[in-house]
Each structure stands twice: as C-alpha cells, then as structure tokens.
Amino acid sequence: MPKAVVVGGGIGGLATAVAFHRRGWEVEVLERAATIAEIGAGLSVWPNALRALDLLGLGDEVRARALEDGAAGIRDPKGRWLARADAAVLRARYGSPIMMHRADLLDVLRRGVPESALRAGISVTEARADGTVTHSAGTSTGDVVVGADGIRSVVRRAVCGEIAPRYSGYTAWRVVVRPSGPVCEMGETWGRGQRFGFSGLHDGRVYCFATANMPEGTRTDGAAELRRRFGTWHEPIGDLIAAATESTVLQNDIYSLPALKTYVSGRVALLGDAAHAMTPNLGQGACQALEDSVVLAAVATEDRDLTRYDALRRPRTQMIAARSERIGTVGQLESAAAVAVRNAVLRCVPSSVQFNALAPVLDWVG
C-alpha cells in the first residue's frame, strides 16, 4: 500500500489526508501543535471549494454546518452602496457560497481521517526529496510527502530553499460575536486604508473581520482598537463591535508568498499556504488548499508524476493570488483623492462585469 506523509494538520493537510485515504493510501499526518484544532474565525467556502469537498465525499456534511453566504456587496462608511451583489445571479451561474466556522470545517475533515493516522505534538525539522521526513519523534518515509505546514513551511525548503513571506502593508482583526438582534445585508465596508466586513454563521453568530494599514508587527488592544476605528461607521458595525470582548479578537498581520518556481521536488509536493499563501481578499486561501488536495491525490494515484500536479495547480493558484493582492491594494487605498476615484469606479461597474470576472476562479470543476 502506498503511503503519504502529510506535514500539517490544518484544513489543507486534513483534506489531503482524506483525499489520499479515500484512494486507498496509508496516511500519516504530522502536526506540530499538541492538538489538531482550529481557533475561532469564520470562513467563506466558495462553489469551487464545495466541488472539491463533494469529490472528497464531505460536501453535504459541510453544507449542513454552514449558512449560505448573504454578502450583499460593498458600502462606504456612511452605508452608501458602492457595489451590489445579486445573490440569485451568483447562485444560478456558479452555485451558492457558504459561510461557516473554521473549526466546524476542520472537524468534518478530521473525522474523515483514521484516528491512527493523526500524530499531534510532532515538530518536523527536515523533509527530503527522497520522501524522508525527520521530526521530533524520529523519521517517517512516504511515497509522497505533502508540505501543508503553512506560510512558514519547513517542508518548502526541500522544494525551493528559504523563501521569505512578504508583508502586505496591513493587519487584520477577526472576531465571532453574538449580536443583540438580527443582522441583515451582510457585506464589506471600504474606508480610507481600512475595511470592515461581516457575515452570518449557521448558529446565529456573526463573523466580523477588519483590516487597516499599519507598520508590520504593530500590536493593538483588539476590541478597543476596533471601536476607535470603526465605531462610528454605519450600523450594524457599531453594535457588532460592542458585542466583541478583548479576549475574543484575533489580530494577524497579513502576509503572502512570492510566486514559487515549482511546487514539487522528487517525492515532495507543497499545497495551501506552504505553496501559495495569499491575501484574504478573494476568500480563496482555504478554497485553493481544498482544490490542491483533490488534484494532488488524483495525480499521485494515477501516475506518481508530481510535476503534473505542479503544472495543474501552480498557474491557477498564482493567478488567484495575484488577483487577491490587487483587490487588497485597491481596498486599502488611503489618500482621499484615490479613494474618491475608486468609489466612483465601483459605482459605475455593472454587476454583470463583476460576475464575469469571477469565472476563472469559480468555474473549477476538479
């Protein structure tokens, strides 16, 4: 029986373990953390990723723990619409995106992997092209070694040496709150050098995220910073922030990877953030990792030619990463003149143009 050693027990790593397991491979998942778990934040699962989950046999279970994403478009801080989204058109053309808690998706994926395959508390120190992985408990060897260990991947060194992540210029806050009343017309609000977005979860809570331009490494006081920056923006933003507590707000600087020259070397393949960490502006980071998992398992099973995985995945993921970065650049514009031009252009772009632009991202069928 062929064996896949998966380094990283996040969404991409567990999805890959499911994909290989379903194709009859032995799998071993090495996770550095003491437990395989996910911290609290929301996640958009777009139709392309739902197709990947369907191919993993988990689509229905995921949908049962999610809510159709009701994002209505983009507004300015006073609540005036810059761009409206037609959910019916999106649904008819691509299918409905859903919103769920990251922990729920991780739980579904984890239950698709044999318990005996999951090894937590294991720190990987080296991976080699011959399929050998050195770690804190010894060594593991696989016919395929999968680097699903994130933007600061150890496995990536075996493929392309040391690659430094790039700071985007902005930080992000994420929080899940339970509002005091119903929240309608989800979406994003774009200001000057900062944005705020919110979307519902299936249990009545609301996932909120915000971004702001600031120097790398700047730490803030979480909920208080959100109130200072966004407390006067249109409702229900103020009410949502009021429901946040200091301990529940997560802050992370946003990084991405430069375009790698390859995702594979010998028996080693990279996926997810280890291969193509991208800014979150298209909501495609986890979605692309799910696609990666399906394609990698299929290629490895069919002919073990990992260069075909690279040819299939690298152009697509790097295209999406570049698009996401451009959207972030526009969304984070700070000068009054540039923001005025941006907002005027957004108001003039027909929704049909917006939907057509999504086609290269959402039309993936596996």
Rank of each mutant, 00 (worst) to 15 (best):
S180T: 15
G131T: 08
F198Y: 15
G131V: 06
S140C: 11
R219W: 01
E225C: 05
G193T: 07
V176Y: 02
V183A: 11
R119E: 13
C160S: 08
T134C: 06
I241G: 03
R119S: 13
E162Q: 14
R195Q: 15
H234V: 15
A148Y: 02
A127I: 13
Y207D: 14
E216T: 03
I163C: 07
V206M: 01
Y207I: 04
E185G: 08
G217Y: 01
V183Q: 11
S116W: 00
S153C: 07
D104P: 00
G112I: 09
S153M: 08
R228F: 01
L109D: 09
G191P: 12
G112C: 11
T189E: 11
A212V: 12
I237W: 05
M186D: 14
C160L: 00
G147A: 05
C208R: 03
D130N: 13
V183P: 05
A117P: 06
A242W: 00
L226T: 02
Y207N: 13
P215M: 07
P114H: 06
W233K: 01
L109C: 06
A210S: 15
G191W: 11
T189L: 09
R229P: 03
R228W: 02
P179F: 08
T139C: 10
D221R: 06
A127W: 05
V108H: 05
V133A: 10
R119M: 08
T132C: 05
I163E: 10
N213A: 05
V176N: 04
D239I: 01
R219A: 13
A244T: 08
R128G: 09
R195F: 04
E162N: 10
G191H: 12
R152C: 13
E162C: 01
D107V: 03
R205W: 00
F198T: 06
G181I: 05
S153W: 03
A223I: 02
A127T: 14
W233L: 05
L106V: 14
N213R: 12
G142M: 06
G131E: 09
A243F: 11
T211V: 10
G150A: 12
A242C: 03
G181Y: 07
G142T: 10
G147N: 06
H202P: 08
D130P: 04
Y167G: 12
E188G: 14
A224C: 00
A210D: 13
V183N: 08
G150I: 10
H202M: 00
L201S: 02
D149A: 04
G181W: 06
R111Q: 15
G142S: 08
V146R: 02
G131S: 09
A224D: 12
D221Y: 00
A210P: 09
A103V: 12
R192V: 04
P179R: 10
I163N: 01
A137N: 15
A120H: 07
F198R: 04
C184T: 15
G197F: 06
P182H: 06
T171W: 02
T125V: 15
E225A: 13
L106Q: 14
H135K: 12
L201T: 02
R156V: 04
